[in-house]
């Protein structure tokens, strides 16, 4: 605000004003429903999730294995070349302990969320998911994790076919 300006416009509605119904409110609920096509690349990815596998796409020019897969390489700006299965294990790139849900309300118990860099994909190729079977205080960046899958009959071809990632138990 310039010191040349001595008053500034606007009327605040305070929480007290709301409680006292000082101003009119017009309330409408908008409930659109969408049905998305998953696309060429992600449809295959989802079908592989149903089989309990992760898959990426390889670009032969930059030699990256892209996860999530795309039919084009956004860097080389050319079609990608082949499907490549990758492991369902990975490394925690970063993590957070979320105390709030989608609408900013407090969650009953905190949720561990992470970016997991997938093994056998190119370095830095992470996906967003949750972590479990681990105390929040034990999670570290660089920690090895593995996918915990839903039983085959419950899988629907969705990212939630992986229930969560847990600390890697293999060798």
């Amino acid at each position: 605000m310039s010191q040349k300006i001595t008053s500034y416009p606007g009327h605040e509605i305070t929480p007290e004003d709301l409680k006292a119904s000082k101003y009119l409110e017009i309330i409408q609920k908008v409930e659109p429903k969408y049905s998305w096509a998953a696309g060429v690349a992600i449809s295959r990815f989802l079908n592989e999730l149903k089989e309990g596998r992760l898959i990426g796409r390889k670009c032969d020019q930059c030699e990256r294995i892209l996860v999530p897969p795309r039919m084009y390489c956004e860097r080389c700006y050319r079609p990608t070349d082949s499907w490549v299965y990758v492991k369902d294990t990975g490394t925690v790139n970063t993590y957070s302990i979320s105390h709030v849900g989608t609408d900013a309300r407090r969650l009953k118990s905190p949720l561990l969320v992470a970016v997991v860099e997938i093994d056998e994909a190119s370095p830095g190729m992470g996906i967003l998911h949750t972590l479990s079977e681990v105390e929040p205080s034990r999670v570290t960046i660089g920690m090895k994790v593995q996918a915990v899958w839903k039983p085959a009959e419950e899988r629907q071809g969705a990212i939630t076919d992986i229930r969560y990632f847990k600390p890697f138990e293999g060798v």
Partner: peptide, 24 residues
């Protein structure tokens, strides 16, 4: 909408994940 929203995302996740990575 296909790979991330089903996990119950909030914008605060992305900031806390980035902040943690920056700190680390």
């Amino acid at each position: 909408q296909i790979l991330e929203r089903p996990l119950g995302t909030t914008l605060l996740w992305i900031f806390s994940l980035e902040m943690r990575r920056y700190m680390h």
